[in-house]
Simulated scan of single mutants.
Amino acid sequence: MITADHSVALPAEWRDFLALTKPRVMTLVVFTGLCGLLAAPGHIHPVIGAIVILCIAVGAGGAAALNMWYESELDAGMKRTAQRPIPAGRMDRINARDFGIALSAGSVMVMGLAAGWLTAALLAISIVYYAVVYTIWLKPRTPQNIVVGGGAGAFPPLIGWIAVTQEVTLMPIVLFAIIFMWTPPHFWALALFVKIDYAKVGIPMMPVVAGETSTRRQILIYAILLAPVAMAPWFLGGAGMIYAIGATLLSLAFVGYSVPVGLRQSSEGDAMKPEKRLFRFSILYLFALFGLLVADRLAANAGLIA
């Protein structure tokens, strides 16, 4: 376990606290939360809407900081994460923990006061889901950690939507389901080319436990299953033709990127492996899909589509 000597001031600075919040991951969290808010039917005051998105961002950052606090020993053993603030020795673990708790509790409290306690409860569940259910329980115990744990990252559009409507309906649940189904092929594509790190620290990620062939097959299966889920907003009448056409093309491309991953036997070979191409496209896919949802709603509000 990497610990810090509390008698010595560690050279932590604002960049290290920012790093604890996983800002690259937070970008996608904030974007999908904003899209859920903008695509929802109804109206929310712009100031309240901005507070909702800020609380989603701060809550996600708090959960990420708690994740880094708990996994600091594991991070120290992996090349990809060894330079994070705690394993690199720039920050005390206790300070990171307290920072995560403060962000998490503060975001839930402000969300409740600004946007209602239903929205705040969903934010609190999402934080506990990631920091406790996924990080402490699922990740070190089962190769299904990403499948079940994918729910943690699926909350933002649900929260954004319900902040506007103040009720749980089928559409925000579908948005949750899209990210839930997207997470395994997205994350397993990453896990395929960093599996040595996970094996070294004993984390039972799918490629480590089930092997590459099984993981690749499951990536392709999930990509195929994701396509009808991504089309569900249109099937349910919650989105129009702009979304339908765009989602169809994006989902076909996602499957297309997944096919060579599913058929490949190993990660040996070219530097730009199919799994890396899939991982990068999967990020673009989710940004574009949720962007289309907002574009469709704006076009409908402007009377450009029925």
Rank of each mutant, 00 (worst) to 15 (best):
T248N: 11
A121V: 03
F155I: 12
I173V: 10
G211F: 03
S7F: 00
W69T: 10
E167L: 00
A239L: 13
A76E: 04
V47D: 08
I136V: 13
S258E: 00
I221W: 08
L74W: 06
I48K: 12
Y129V: 13
M26G: 15
A115C: 03
G112F: 01
L192D: 07
I224C: 13
P185H: 04
V25I: 15
L37G: 02
S282R: 08
V47R: 07
G240Q: 04
I86C: 06
L123V: 00
P156H: 01
L118M: 04
G59Y: 09
S126H: 03
P157M: 14
K273R: 15
M78E: 10
A131K: 02
T215Q: 08
V29L: 07
G151I: 12
G303P: 08
E71S: 09
I173K: 03
H6K: 11
G116D: 04
V25M: 13
P260S: 01
L138Y: 08
A9G: 09
P204E: 05
T119D: 09
M68Q: 04
V52K: 02
V58W: 05
L263W: 14
F99S: 00
G153K: 11
G112N: 01
I245F: 08
V164F: 03
G160P: 09
M68P: 01
V164Y: 03
V164L: 05
G211P: 01
E71H: 05
V25S: 11
P185E: 02
E73R: 15
R24S: 12
V174W: 06
V194Q: 10
V25R: 13
L38I: 13
T165E: 00
L236I: 15
A302T: 01
V201K: 00
P172E: 07
N301Q: 15
G49Q: 04
W137G: 13
V229E: 07
V261W: 12
G116E: 05
L138W: 07
V294I: 03
Y257A: 05
G36R: 00
P157H: 13
I162E: 03
V174F: 05
Y70M: 13
A105E: 00
N67T: 02
G49N: 05
T27I: 05
V201C: 00
G112C: 02
L28Y: 12
I162K: 05
R280D: 13
L74Y: 09
L304A: 11
W14K: 06
L292H: 04
L249M: 01
I136M: 09
H45V: 10
G153L: 12
G36M: 00
K139G: 15
D296C: 14
F193C: 09
A189L: 06
A244Q: 14
I224E: 08
V259R: 06
L289A: 04
G151A: 11
A65T: 10
L20K: 12
W117K: 00
G151Y: 12
M91K: 01
L226I: 06
V229R: 07
G61K: 05
W182P: 00
P233Q: 15
L289T: 08
I242D: 11
I283R: 05
A253K: 07
E13H: 11
F281Q: 11
